[in-house]
Structure formats: C-alpha cells, structure tokens
C-alpha cells in the first residue's frame, strides 16, 4: 500500500496498469486453474511432515476407536447368538409368548369388554403403543408443515404468481367441473357415513380408529377436490385442525393415564365396560378410537392440502 502510494505521488503509477495486466489472459484459463489447484493441493496436503502430524494427533484416538468398535461388535454378535441359541423351536409352544396370547384370547373379552380382541389389545392392553403411533402421525404432519407451508414472505414475493403454480393449477382445477361435483355430492356423504360406521364399530368388528379415520380423511380430500378449497376453508381451517388434533391427543393421554394410574387392566377405575357386543361397550375403547380417528383424518387431509397448495385453510 505504501509503495503504491509513493509511486502515485512520484507520478510513476499508471492507472490503467491492472487493466493491461488483465488483458494478458492466458490461452486457456482452465489450464491455469488446474495448475493453481494443483499448487494449492500440494501446499496443503503434500507437506512432507503431514504424515507425522496426523500420526501424532490421531494415533491414540484411532487405536481406542478401533478397539472399542471391535469389542462392541463382538459383544453384540455374542449376545444375539446366545439369545438365538436359547429361543424355542419354531412352532413349539413356548412360555414366553404363548402365555400372553392365551391370556388375550381367554380373558380378552371379559377384561376389556370388546368383542374384537385386536381392538382390545391395541387400545387397552397396549394403549401406550397406539398413543405413540398417533404421535408419530402428528409429528409427521408437523414436519410436512415445516417443510411445505408457504409463509407470507413467499406469497408476497410474487412467487405464487409464477406460471407453474397459478396457471397450471387453473388448468387442473377440477372443482368447477359438473361431473366431479355430482360425484362428490353423491359419494362424500356415503363415504363419511361409512367412515363413522367403521370408527364406531371398532370394538365389535373389524375397523377402528386408524381405518375409520383413513376413510373419513379420504372423504375430506374428495370434498376438497370436488368443491374447491374455498368451501373447505370455511369450516376446516388450520385452527380447527390443530385444536382437533391437540384435544384428541390430550384426551387420549389423560384418559389412558387415569386408567394406568388407578391400576391398569381395569382394577380400580370407574369406567363401565358395558355388555360386550353393544355399541357402547368396551369401556374406553370407543372414545379412544374416536380420538385416533380424528387424528388420522386430520393428518390425511393436512398432507393433501399442504402438498397441493402449501397451506391448510387458506394461504
């Protein structure tokens, strides 16, 4: 800098010096770049003392790392082989699993009040498992929201006015079509009714929260496709969705927590089991089915809406 300043003072400096330098472009800039890279690599990696540096810093760490890895692998293999050697043979009666199965089959109806033993299992004996599953759905919905939801900045930035969003959406916007409107008018009530039937019949037959909720979610998607998102947004906003999911999950948590704290397996709680086979039977199974069904339906519609237009219930 100082040299440059003195040269400028003495009048030696040509202001266009660097320009003339730049005019001497080498024949192939790629070749020059290659040599530069090579030099850089040599300067960094090919130092003669590099090996000794790495060795000094990492020798001890690598030794410990390798020994721990080998020991943990050998221990894991040994434990698994030991367990496999002590497993009962396939098809033989074994006390570890058959006891539980016998218990479910023989006392399931009496203890849970549900004719459908599977519903009794997943919503009474193993209710924590189902709670985790509904939370998995909830977490998936939250993750999709984080990834795909359009924020105000994106909408205001004119991103939505681009050809590929608005124009193509109007091309494929089927909600003004007469045929699909008629189909939606006829089908949506039937599908919702069928979903409610499957949902409420979970303790007496095949069905339950997950399947009924999936059917109802399909009906919601069908309605949104047939009549447009505008009509759906009048009822089913993001607030409605979040409130429904929140209250369903918290109801599940508190109801099942009450049962587990008062002694699981119906020891000392005051929830009537009803007559097995009736609609209002099975104790907590029916409300829990409804809660799970609400979560599943909201998750399915939320996925569809987020993937289709990047928001639930209006941009």
């Amino acid at each position: 800098m100082k040299e440059w300043f003195t040269r400028w003072l003495n009048g030696d400096l040509e202001l266009l010096e660097h320009v003339s330098d730049a005019s001497e472009i080498p024949d192939s800039p790629r070749e020059e770049l290659k040599t530069k890279r090579k030099e850089f690599r040599q300067r960094i990696y090919d130092r003669p003392d590099m090996d000794s540096i790495i060795r000094a810093e990492q020798k001890g760490f690598l030794a410990i790392y390798h020994t721990i890895a080998i020991i943990s692998c050998v221990v894991l293999i040994g434990v698994l082989l030991f367990t496999v050697a002590h497993l009962p043979r396939y098809g033989e009666e074994n006390p570890y699993t058959m006891e539980v199965v016998e218990r479910y089959v023989e006392h399931g109806v009496e203890e849970t009040g549900a004719v459908n033993i599977v519903a009794g299992m997943i919503l009474d004996y193993r209710a924590f498992d189902t709670l985790g599953e509904s939370h998995v759905l909830f977490t998936a919905l939250v993750c999709v929201m984080i990834l795909l939801k359009l924020d105000k900045k994106t909408i205001r930035g004119g991103y939505l006015d681009s050809y590929y969003t608005v124009k193509q959406d109007t091309y494929f916007d089927v909600s003004k079509d007469t045929i699909i409107r008629l189909a939606g008018t006829v089908l949506v009530p039937c599908i919702v009714l069928f979903g409610i039937y499957v949902l409420l019949n979970g303790q007496n037959g095949p069905g339950g929260g997950f399947s009924g909720g999936a059917i109802m979610g399909a009906a919601l998607i069908m309605f949104a496709t047939a009549f447009g998102f505008d009509r759906m947004d009048r009822v089913f906003t993001e607030k409605v969705l979040s409130l429904t999911v929140f209250f369903s999950l918290s109801f599940y948590c508190f109801a099942k927590g009450y049962v587990f704290f008062t002694g699981a397996n119906g020891l000392d709680n005051h929830i009537p089991k009803g007559i097995p086979g009736a609609i209002l039977s099975g104790g907590l199974i029916l409300p829990l089915d409804i809660a799970v069904g609400m979560v599943v339906a909201c998750t399915m519609y939320g996925f569809y809406s987020l993937f289709k237009r990047g928001s639930i219930g209006g941009a």
Binding site: I180, A183, V186, L187
Partner: peptide, 17 residues
C-alpha cells in the same frame, strides 16, 4: 360404475390439456 367413469373423464381431460 359411479367412480370409474369420473376417473376416466379426468384422465382424458388432463391429456387434452
């Protein structure tokens, strides 16, 4: 019989567009 024609209709519509 109710749903299959609807889906065919929209398939052909997408093809048309």
């Amino acid at each position: 019989w109710f749903t299959s024609p609807v889906s065919s209709h929209f398939l052909s519509q997408v093809e048309y567009y």
